[in-house]
Amino acid sequence: MIKIEKLEKVYKTEEVETTALNGIDLYVKEGEFVSIMGPSGCGKSTLLNVMGLLDKPESGSYKFIDTELLTLNDRERSNFRKRNMGFVFQNFNLIDELTVFENIELPLIYNKVPATERKKLVNEIIERMNIVNRSGHFPQQLSGGQQQRVAVARALVTKPKLVLADEPTGNLDSSHGNEVMELLCELNETGTTIVMVTHSSHDASFSNRIINLKDGHVISEKVNKSRNEELI
């Protein structure tokens, strides 16, 4: 589904140039769950940002199904993003002024989904995420695990083709972290493609394939056999 070729991204400050991505090639198949791992500064977050169209690389190609995304302008990128992608962040990034329900509803509004259908979709996902009794609460009133579940719900409510997760368990304790990982697996099993950046090999073990980055290169790729066998 995703085909990335020779992607380069350089961060420039007044004195230093940092090469974050140094000619990365990468593919992701539809329905895959890919983990990206690597030490700090290896470029994994940059890669995820580029994949999420939040950042622009200097050169290279990024094809989603058969559409080249790097030539799109800002408006087209926004449009593409809201129709095809969902995001889960390490620090949840819920809007503090909105309730759980309203937070989840927000992407639907941007996709111009009619109100009655919005209500139906949000309620469905709230039920599925097991946070029904929390729907009127504000984010600060929830635990970290609950907040991340809301964030996942928000990422899924538009039924995106691709979910990008940036260290989704980074701010959670292990039991809450596992809950979220299981949630992502369930999601993957229903056919959603997932790309996740993580530090934790435990989390990575939930995925089909693990890509290791270092200094902006892919240094190794490992297919997670146990998980793939499970799949079969």
């Binding site: 999420g52 939040l54 800002d74 408006r75 926004s78 449009n79 993003r81 809201k82 129709r83 995001f87 990034n93 819920l94 809007i95 503090d96 002024e97 927000l106 992407p107 941007y110 996709n111």
Partner: peptide, 13 residues
């Protein structure tokens, strides 16, 4: 953060 989240969800500038 609000701006960031909304942009991620596809809000235009």
């Amino acid at each position: 953060k609000e701006v960031g989240v909304k942009k991620v969800m596809g809000a235009f500038r």
